[in-house]
């Protein structure tokens, strides 16, 4: 699990100091998929960096379970000089866990999610949606407990986006991972999450939290559900747009 407890974060530049996060508290339970939405520039990426431990909070405490965090970024950032398979092994190499067993597990994971025929290809031979899937499997190959997703669909075109959105959600659910997604896309947040946390403009603090439990556990049926539109309106008002 992941818990933010009264987090403050201030960053410093030559021009001055900016409080990006102010008294922020929320919890991501084990196995939960939580989305954080907020107006653009409200410090969403900062929140992920805090969660990953790349940044230390100015005050407050981030409580992480004993597991590691895996990061998935806006763009797939696959290395073009490596094959899909070698890309998937990258976290193992970096974390010095590049054993045959771990590699085998990573390959199994890739095969399970339909990358069998792509393992020996280079990223440039894959479609945008496929590349994001590879990026997800790469993140999972190091077996993190918590996945941190930084608008991983925003660089994709609309159709691919819906597709990859469903794809990623189902993989994360079936691997029983805990996930924290930051996004500015309200419908994406509703479709994917068990819980949506709404942030204020900078300095970011929690405005509201909503448990989402209608429409079963898949994005497609949720989008078709009547409550989708009403929830959308509620969140939209809370964001002040």
């Amino acid at each position: 699990m992941l818990e933010f407890r009264n987090i403050y974060y201030t960053y410093h530049t030559k021009e001055g100091e900016t409080t990006a996060v102010k008294d922020l508290s929320f919890t991501v339970e084990d196995g939960q998929f939580v989305s954080v939405i907020g107006p653009s520039g409200c410090g969403k990426t900062t929140i992920l960096s805090l969660a990953a431990g790349l940044l230390a909070p100015s005050a407050g405490e981030v409580i992480r379970g004993n597991g590691e965090c895996g990061y998935m970024l806006q763009r797939d950032a696959l290395f073009p000089w490596r094959t899909v398979e070698q890309n998937i092994f990258l976290p193992l190499e970096v974390k010095k866990r590049n054993t045959p067993e771990k590699r085998e597990r990573a390959v199994e994971l890739a095969v399970k999610y339909g990358l069998k025929d792509f393992l020996k290809k280079t990223p440039s031979q894959l479609s945008g949606g496929m590349r994001q899937r590879v990026a997800l499997i790469r993140t999972l190959s190091a077996e993190p407990e918590i996945l941190l997703l930084d608008e991983p669909f925003s660089a994709l075109d609309y159709q691919t986006r819906l597709e990859v959105c469903d794809d990623v959600q189902s993989i994360i659910k079936s691997e029983k991972k805990t996930a924290l997604l930051v996004t500015h896309d309200i419908s994406e947040a509703i479709a994917l999450s068990d819980k949506v946390v709404v942030l204020s403009a900078r300095p970011a603090t929690v405005v509201a939290q909503h448990m989402i439990d209608f429409g079963g556990n898949n994005p497609k049926s949720r989008r078709e559900c009547g409550e989708f539109a009403s929830t959308f309106e509620v969140l939209r008002k809370e964001l002040g747009i």
Partner: peptide
């Protein structure tokens, strides 16, 4: 070198 790739490396603790 692409900043996103650098962030990726950093996030893996490289």
């Amino acid at each position: 070198v692409d900043k996103t790739k650098l962030t990726l490396m950093k996030s893996m603790g490289a």
